[in-house]
Design a binder for these strands. Structure first.
Lengths: 132, 132
DNA sequence: AACATAAATAATAAAGTTTGTCAATAAGAA
DNA sequence: TTCTTATTGACAAACTTTATTATTTATGTT
C-alpha cells in the first residue's frame, strides 16, 4: 500500500525552506522555486508547506501583521519581529524552556507539544531612522 | 484642535473586548455587538481594534490556524491553543519574563516592546476523544 | 443654540491570504 | 509495462483584512 509519494515539487519546496534563513511566507517560497520549477502552482506550495509543518519537518510561525512564515531550522530558537519594517530575525542564545511546557501540562491538563515565542520591537536600522 | 473623537462604536467595541475572556476575532466582536448596535460595519470593528491594539489598550494575538484574536486583559499571561478543536485559553500562573526582553535587547540591539508566547497542544476534552 | 470643521462611520469594493475542486499527471506497486 | 491512486496544475471560491467614498456626527467655536 502506498502512503506518501516523493515528488519533485515536494523536494524542491522542502529544500527551499531548509536552504534559507529568511523565514519565507508561502508566496515567497513560490517565488523562490519558480526559476527551477516554472509550472509549479501556488496551491501545491501551500499544500506541501502545510503538510511539512503538520508532521514537524518544518516550523510554522504566526506573526502579527504578516502571513504565516515557515522555518526549516528545527533547532530551538526564538524570533524577533520589527514592528516598523517587518524585519524578522532568529535569536539562538536563549534555550528552549521545555520545563515551561511540562509546567503548563501539570496545571492545565493540556498535552503541550510546543510553544512559540515572538518578540516584537524596533530593529537597529529603524531606531536610527527615528530622528530626534 | 481635535485629535480623537469618542464614538459610541469605539466604546462598544472596547467594552466588548474587555468584557469577555473568549479572545474574540474581529468577526466575533462584530457579532457580539450587533444586538446593541445593528448597523455597525465590520470595517469599523477592524479599524477600532487595530487602533486599540496599536496604542496598547488591548492585545492582539497571532495564532496558527486562526484569524488574529484580541484580548482586553493586559495583565501578563500566556495563551494555550488546542490544535484539535481550536479552544483557546489563558494561563496566568507563569510570570512574564521581562528579563528575557532585556536580554534580547542587549544581544541584538533591537528595542523590545514585548513578547507573545503561545502554547500548542491538545486540550483535555480532545485527549478524551482519542479512543485507544 | 447654531454653525463649522474634519474625524469617524456605513456601505461596499478591492486586495490579500488560504483552501477546495477536479481533470490530468505521474510515483510506485505488481 | 500496466494499474492504482496520491499528487499536481489550473482555477474557483472562501476567508480575512484593508481601502475608498459619500455621509454622519463629535467637538470646538461663535
Amino acid at each position: 500500500m502506498i502512503k506518501e509519494r516523493q515528488t519533485k515539487q515536494k523536494a524542491v519546496i522542502l529544500s527551499a525552506v531548509q536552504g534559507t534563513k529568511t523565514h519565507p511566507t508561502a508566496e515567497q517560497v513560490y517565488e523562490m522555486i519558480r526559476d527551477e520549477m516554472p509550472n509549479v502552482s501556488l496551491g501545491t506550495v501551500y499544500r506541501n508547506l502545510n503538510r511539512l509543518a503538520e508532521i514537524g519537518t518544518i516550523r510554522r510561525i504566526s506573526v502579527i501583521n504578516s502571513p504565516d512564515k515557515f522555518d526549516g531550522d528545527l533547532t530551538p530558537h526564538h524570533h524577533i519581529s520589527c514592528t516598523q519594517c517587518g524585519k524578522f530575525c532568529d535569536f539562538f542564545d536563549a534555550e528552549y524552556n521545555e520545563s515551561l511546557d511540562r509546567f503548563i501540562e501539570a496545571k492545565t491538563s493540556f498535552r503541550i507539544a510546543k510553544h512559540e515565542t515572538v518578540f516584537y520591537g524596533v530593529c537597529p536600522e529603524c531606531k536610527c531612522n527615528e530622528l530626534n
